[in-house]
Amino acid sequence: MRAVFELQGTVFYIIAVCLAILVFLIILNMKLKKFDPLDEPKGLVLMAMMGVNFIENMLKKDTNKEMTEKLGPYLAFLFIYIFIANISGLFGLTPPTSNYSVTLTLAAITCIMIEYYSIKYNGVKSYVKKLFEPLAPFVVINIISKVGTLLSLSLRLFGNIIAGSILMSVVYQLLARVSALIPVIGKFNFVGVIVCSVLHMYFDLFAGAMQTYLFGTLTVAFISNELPEEAKGK
């Protein structure tokens, strides 16, 4: 009998990443409950405070107070989820963000949010009017540019992560051949372990953190682009 649908392997990696985030947040919550506000924060508590501060400052600069409260949790989710998904390659998983479905979903949420806030703050009338600017035939180009935002946001993250993991697997295979030349202990790919630690540093940690930051910053920048000037900075 043919299966009706096939589960992609990424589903299990997504579940693993979500469990890791869950455990991390439960530990953080326990620490925060025990924390006395008069004490000097340190460790995880300090990290959480710095994160919240960072996100609030980023949003306050470009948007208004109401949106800071509403977009803050979403942005925090983006940062935590994408960062842990990106660096999960360090723990031997395939990063969930190297599957296009995952990044497309994340970018779609952001794009729907951009349109929602654009309609909310500009009104339906000027939103439709903006589509036909500067001339009526430009409506096609304007709609294409909206799809372009979705494509570029999702493909940027996907491309960076998948390029990293493809390169890593190629280098691992090459180094396995090299270390097979060494007698007795060569079967265990220890040349790969030594050389690839540097590559993991770049492709997983640096590129992962950079792309997380970019995704968050671009989300805020695109949303604040749609706002009228008078709605900002209140």
């Binding site: 372009g148 494509l151 570029s152 493909l155 940027r156 491309g159 390029a163 930051y213 970019l214 910053t217 671009l218 920048a221």
Partner: peptide, 20 residues
């Protein structure tokens, strides 16, 4: 810094389309 990141990210779109 924020403008530079935005500019770099938008000009990167071109390379991303090539990759696509």
């Amino acid at each position: 810094r924020s403008m530079a990141i935005l500019g770099a990210a938008i000009s990167e779109t071109c390379a991303i389309y090539g990759m696509l």
